[in-house]
């Protein structure tokens, strides 16, 4: 990856992180922790990997993105706004009555949202449908999914995981945003995930383990996934919940709480310079 490209993606991730904090602060609700943990992945997808056009959001040949962990909607909305799918002002109406940006992604009302999500566990199956349709129509679009680590406690994930492998959906690339925390506490205390990679491998998936905040590792993993034929790939991305905001990092309490105006100021300052928080920035 070119240095300029890397810097652009990191800068977009920084802006998206600021959007996440501003949006949840203005809404006085929302889920900043898991949005921040997946910001580098989502920024990479929208500003490097995915073939999408804000002027033609329903292009049948576009790559698809399913935010299975729909509560992280701020990260998606931030990316879509930065990409130009809708005016940035919409971010300030997030979660407000009559607004376009619903608490959880809603595909009919928001340009660029490919699937309505929010009830955990459902995104991977929808991605399978999109991927099967792509194969049927001999289209070469790819389907990207971001799942939460707590989310894979849902049984339906494993129904879908079996189907992706059975139908050899090598056009599906899933990310596991493995930040280790869920609402009630660390995943290992709430409901142990045990050996996550082994689980997916035993479901006949290709697995790649990376640092989910390192753009170059994300890039290498997505490129590797493209070369894997006959099976889906999951990129198990080790992340930090609340990444980039000093007082939110690794704090379970920031799963579903919004920053106050004062806390927002601190957050925006924390996020003012990539070098302060981005491991990939040199």
């Amino acid at each position: 990856m070119q240095k300029e490209q890397l810097i652009l993606i990191q800068e977009k991730a920084r802006l998206i992180r600021q959007d996440i904090c501003t949006m949840t602060c203005k809404a006085k609700s929302g889920h900043p922790g898991g949005s921040l943990s997946s910001a580098d992945i989502v920024a990479y997808l929208y500003f490097h990997a995915m073939n999408v056009d804000p002027k033609n959001p329903k292009d049948p040949n576009r790559d698809r993105f399913v935010l299975s962990k729909g509560h992280a909607s701020p990260v998606l909305y931030g990316a879509l706004a930065e990409k130009g799918f809708f005016p940035r002002e919409e971010l300030l109406n997030f979660r407000k009555i009559g607004a376009m940006l619903q608490g959880h992604p809603e595909m009919k009302g928001t340009p660029g949202v490919d699937m309505s999500t929010g009830s955990l566990g459902q995104g991977l199956a929808a991605a399978n449908g999109m991927a099967l349709a792509g194969k049927l129509d001999k289209k070469d679009y790819r389907v990207f999914v971001v799942m939460g680590d707590g989310e894979i406690q849902e049984g339906m994930i494993w129904e879908a995981a079996m189907a992706s492998a059975h139908y050899k959906l090598d056009n599906v690339t899933a990310f596991l945003d493995y930040n280790g925390l869920q609402i009630d506490g660390p995943t290992e205390e709430v409901m142990s995930l045990c050996d996550v990679a082994a689980k997916w491998q035993s479901f006949c998936w290709h697995t790649i383990e990376i640092d989910g905040h390192n753009i170059e590792e994300i890039h290498a993993a997505v490129e590797e996934a493209k070369t894997v034929k006959g099976k889906p790939t999951i990129i198990i991305a080790k992340t930090v919940k609340g990444k980039g905001v000093s007082y939110m990092e690794n704090q379970v309490g920031w799963h579903g709480n919004a920053p106050s105006d004062e806390q927002l100021e601190t957050a925006l300052a924390d996020l003012a310079d990539i070098a302060d928080f981005c491991g990939g920035a040199q």
Binding site: A126, G129, A133, A160
Partner: peptide, 12 residues
């Protein structure tokens, strides 16, 4: 469950 979700994806 997977069947209904997959059907939804097809419809999109």
């Amino acid at each position: 469950q997977g069947m209904m979700g997959t059907a939804a994806g097809f419809a999109t």
